[in-house]
Simulated assay, not measured.
Amino acid sequence: MGIIDKLNKDFESRVRLGIMSILMVNDWIDFTEMKSLLNITDGNLASHSSAMEKAEYIEVKKEFIGKKPRTSYRVTNRGRAAFMEHLNNLEKLMKSNN
């Protein structure tokens, strides 16, 4: 099995890479801020975050602030470990091509 086979397919999308990169350096981040940082649509963020929640890479918290709903995200320990492994394998892949 080559290094490229060790890359995590769950992080192949630029949106998912963006979500994970943002969550690795923030505790909780809300839907509106995440959507703005990534410059994507509501539906795009909702579908990617749902898939990542299902894989247990992120935690999704839904709450009401006053009467307004708020959705926030944070990376799970499993997500942090999987993303770090993915980044390490990317680095190995880049170094193997020198």
Rank of each mutant, 00 (worst) to 15 (best):
M1Q: 07
G2H: 07
I3E: 10
I3D: 04
D5N: 15
D5A: 15
L7D: 07
L7G: 00
K9G: 00
F11Y: 12
F11S: 04
R14W: 12
V15D: 08
G18H: 08
I19E: 02
M20P: 02
M20K: 05
M20I: 00
S21Y: 10
I22L: 10
I22A: 01
L23H: 01
L23I: 08
L23W: 09
M24C: 05
M24W: 05
V25N: 06
N26V: 03
D27P: 11
D27Y: 09
F31R: 15
F31E: 11
T32P: 00
T32F: 04
M34K: 11
M34E: 00
K35Y: 00
K35Q: 13
L37H: 11
N39I: 08
I40Y: 09
I40P: 03
T41A: 15
D42R: 15
N44P: 01
N44Q: 15
L45D: 01
L45E: 02
A46V: 06
S47V: 11
S47D: 01
H48F: 01
S49G: 10
S49N: 11
S50Y: 10
S50H: 12
A51Q: 13
A51N: 10
K54P: 10
E56M: 11
E56H: 10
E56F: 08
E56P: 04
Y57P: 09
I58G: 01
E59Q: 08
V60M: 04
V60S: 08
V60Q: 08
K61F: 09
K61R: 10
E63K: 15
E63C: 10
G66V: 07
G66L: 10
P69V: 06
R70C: 02
Y73R: 12
Y73D: 08
R74D: 05
R74L: 09
T76Y: 06
R78H: 10
R80S: 01
A81G: 06
M84P: 02
M84A: 13
E85D: 15
E85C: 05
H86I: 03
H86A: 06
L87K: 07
N88K: 12
N89D: 15
N89E: 14
E91R: 11
K92F: 03
K92T: 05
K92G: 00
M94R: 13
K95H: 09
N97P: 00
N98P: 04
